[in-house]
Write a protein that binds this DNA or RNA. Structure first.
Lengths: 341, 341
DNA sequence: TTCTAAATCGAAAACGTTTTCGAAATCACC
DNA sequence: GGTGATTTCGAAAACGTTTTCGATTTAGAA
């Protein structure tokens, strides 16, 4: 409980607080000899600046806030790891909050972060949010925001995303090129744009290859925490459309539910029905057959989001104009067993 | 960029900063009428206190730090979710740092958190740390620390753990009671106590049931990020000891590697060799056969760790004596397919 | 009306830094 | 020894709050 502060060093040395502060911060108007004495004394007294006081004086906290909509799992784990690594590298601390897909939560948490004077915030939007004034408020107050993954096009800030529609288009095109003809889609709920985009990619790929889109082959899986949805809808679709030969699933989670059911029901994957996932979560290599999927680079997403944010923080500090970037990270197909006969 | 502060409200109302502050904080020496005026003006000017200034004055940040040794995955995801939920509930923010199993990192990060004036810190030790002076320093400086999962008995602070030895003992006893006779153990590396304790539990269970412990049946799996270790050692043990009938694995991850190999090599699980995991990670229900395992309550661990920490913070603030608690969370066997014939 | 008690307010210090600006001391040079 | 330039230091203000303590006003009682 013996926190040493500037004044302790100063009085130990019989000099002023100002001189101590300057010596420690490398000001040039302090003689080498007193600087040396100060540094040594600071060392022996185990001095560490009180960050709160520094923050108040300098008006920056070297801290960024992160708001994620869901629990820390799967995709968001990767993003978080990317965020933590890059933030550490750049000397920033990170505060994490989860909105549980609630707009009110998200709004409250963003306000809290601003009140805490974080230097910037990273966020992935909740499914509920269709009003973005809280974000615009933050930006107007000079707290830069960068959106990742679940973004809103209408907000004027930097964003880092993948192209869900294109990734889905590629996935379905891959299936078509492999010779699959009757391809179903297990989509996500109707609200998040990612879910919509992946569905659109699916639809466009069919049309681009001259296959008629059949809405009856689209099933909704809106449970994001378990694979039961995939399991049950797989059962359902094999009753209603036993002649399908492939399913493009919105996530690896539902893909795994599908494969689980197929394995239990004796339906051969990929021989009778191929399965294509999305995200390349760890468990996609655990299941048998191993899952063909889209690699969604969560770690890189976290990395670049932090990088952009910290650059913007620096620009704002130097009163430079900040130019917002929209970064679209590349995805790629990871071909495994569930689609190759 | 128009942050309103106390003085703005004060001058708008023609009163002093003191009165505004008191009115907002519910001091009783402010008349109802001015209080009402202040509150209304604060509302319309959208006042939010500057947390940094408040922190400096009150000497508390309502923030806790968390240091985890590994990447945010599997078990630590659950813990983190528990931490985030409980912290939010109690009005605390959380800063997360990862030490990557490096003692020097851990030490540096703890110092950083103290410098940032967090009110307390939660940590799970790195494999390298066998010197605990940094933790004792923190505690001596009145920053309470509570250790979880990977702890050090010698540090005088609260801890929340599971009983690894007992859990392992239960697991192996379960196998013995099921009739398995030649039970191997795929242990973790030699350094973390958890790994040692689980090994000891294994050994004691054998001895308690009159089965001779054979060190040749113990294999080391020290890769925590992939299941290759389990896979390769499974291959090895089936060459060297083809007559084993069960394996107790240190984590679900290596258990899954084992099952993967067994599935590919045509070795029937559990008929020829049963497999028992540890932790009850999500993927243990993904694999076929589904994995019998020990439920390690990560979410509850995060919850109670935060709860204890915040209680200690309150005690310290009120200069009450703090009594450290050692909480041992119960584990239980989750019986699935990999051990029932 | 006067005196006391209660109600209401504000000046100022404090939290621990950083930074501006001026003062003092030293130096170089003639 | 005097001048100006340079080096070295420190007083003080500032960041935005909270809180103590004293001052002033008001109400109540006699």
């Amino acid at each position: 409980m013996n926190d040493t502060k500037l004044i302790d060093i100063a009085s130990a040395l019989g000099i002023s607080v100002t001189t101590v502060s300057k010596a420690l911060k490398g000001y040039t108007d302090i003689s080498k000899s007193t600087r040396a004495k100060v540094i040594e004394m600071a060392e022996t007294m185990n001095y560490m600046p009180n960050s709160v006081a520094v923050n108040l004086r300098t008006n920056e906290t070297k801290t960024i806030g992160v708001i994620i909509p869901a629990t820390v799992h799967h995709f968001f784990s990767s993003v978080l790891n990317g965020i933590l690594e890059e933030a550490e590298k750049r000397g920033y601390l990170v505060i994490i909050l989860q909105s549980n897909e609630k707009y009110e939560m998200e709004k409250k948490q963003l306000a809290l972060l601003i009140q805490k004077r974080v230097d910037g915030v990273l966020m992935s939007l909740s499914n509920e949010t269709d009003d973005f004034s809280h974000i615009n408020d933050a930006i107007r107050k000079n707290t830069p925001v960068v959106l990742f993954d679940k973004i809103a096009k209408r907000v004027d800030c930097s964003k880092v995303v993948i192209n869900d529609a294109k990734a889905a288009f590629d996935a379905v095109s891959y299936l078509i090129n492999k010779g699959y003809k009757k391809i179903a889609h297990f989509r996500g709920s109707y609200v998040p744009q990612n879910s919509i985009d992946r569905f659109l990619g699916y639809k466009r790929a069919l049309e681009a290859h001259g296959i008629e889109y059949d809405p009856k082959l689209v099933y909704v899986c809106d449970n994001n925490t378990d694979f039961e949805d995939g399991y049950e809808n797989a059962q359902k679709i094999m009753n209603e459309h036993p002649d399908i030969d492939a399913i493009f699933a919105i996530t690896d989670l539902v893909a795994i539910g599908i494969i689980k059911y197929f394995n239990e029901a004796g339906i051969k994957t990929p021989d009778q029905v191929a399965v294509f996932g999305f995200s390349n979560w760890f468990m996609s290599t655990v299941i048998s057959p191993k899952l063909t999927t889209i690699d969604q680079p969560g770690f890189e997403m976290g990395h670049t989001a932090v990088s952009i944010l910290i650059d913007e923080i620096a620009d704002i500090k130097e009163h430079k104009p900040v130019t917002h970037q929209i970064i679209e990270l590349p995805t790629r197909i990871i071909e495994r067993e569930s689609t190759v006969k």
